[in-house]
Design a protein around this nucleic acid. Structure first.
Lengths: 117, 117
DNA sequence: CTAAACACTGGACTACGCTCCAAGGTCAAG
DNA sequence: CTTGACCTTGGAGCGTAGTCCAGTGTTTAG
């Protein structure tokens, strides 16, 4: 698959895919004419990249995790570890968020706004 | 309070505070010699800014919310609305995350890794 | 054969959130 | 009166994640 088709199929742009290649997120063979040639699985991989990104992973992390998973003896365990780790981060954020809301509600109720100035 | 003390008390740097001033996140009076002079509440305000930031708000959003709250007729309601909104975003992300984990677990179990290439 | 559509590269540019630096002004202690 | 800590400004630079462009080559359809 050439870059234009991959871009169309993943809802990205050619430029973004070339950028992803530069940072090691995707790899493509080259055709004799120098055009990139991507495997069909790259479509799913890019969908995964986008999901992981909305979950707060950086591109560098996603690339690193991808490599770790390819090298992991037991991908199922590695994946579980990875995502349970991320869930813990999100849980922690939710807890912070809840604590902050409580704190703010209290403070506003007692007539102590955050920003008097 | 001058900038150095504020920086020390909030765990930031002078440069960061000057940057925050440029983007409208903090406001300070000036002493006759030109030095910035911050109100004591600025310490709490900056603590709040940092918390809001870790929760995924951009500095622009935080600044805007600060202004909205100062102008809001009922700050308690405004705050609640603001944070319940953000909690919904986080909840949605957690749901996505849970869905993704389930999907990944399934896929790895059935011998279909994300990245065959 | 030509034109359109697609591909390539390198480099500039953007927004965000800082971080560092140079050159200079202010102030309190010794 | 000097030294050192502290403050000022403007501007450069950085990492992340792209986005856009110019100039050029390739492929495909009429």
């Amino acid at each position: 698959m050439r870059i234009g088709e991959l871009a169309a199929r993943t809802g990205t742009t050619r430029d973004t895919i070339r950028f992803y290649e530069r940072v090691g997120l995707v790899e493509g063979r080259r055709l004799p004419n120098g055009y990139r040639d991507f495997a069909p699985e790259t479509v799913e991989w890019l969908a995964y990249v986008r999901t992981a990104q909305t979950l707060g992973f950086t591109l560098a992390e996603i690339a690193r995790h991808g490599e770790e998973l390819r090298e992991a003896p037991d991908s199922a365990d590695a994946l579980s570890a990875l995502f349970e780790q991320k869930i813990q981060v999100v849980d922690a954020r939710m807890a912070e968020l809840a604590a902050l809301r409580a704190e703010l509600t209290d403070r506003v109720g007692t007539g102590c706004p955050l920003r008097t100035a």
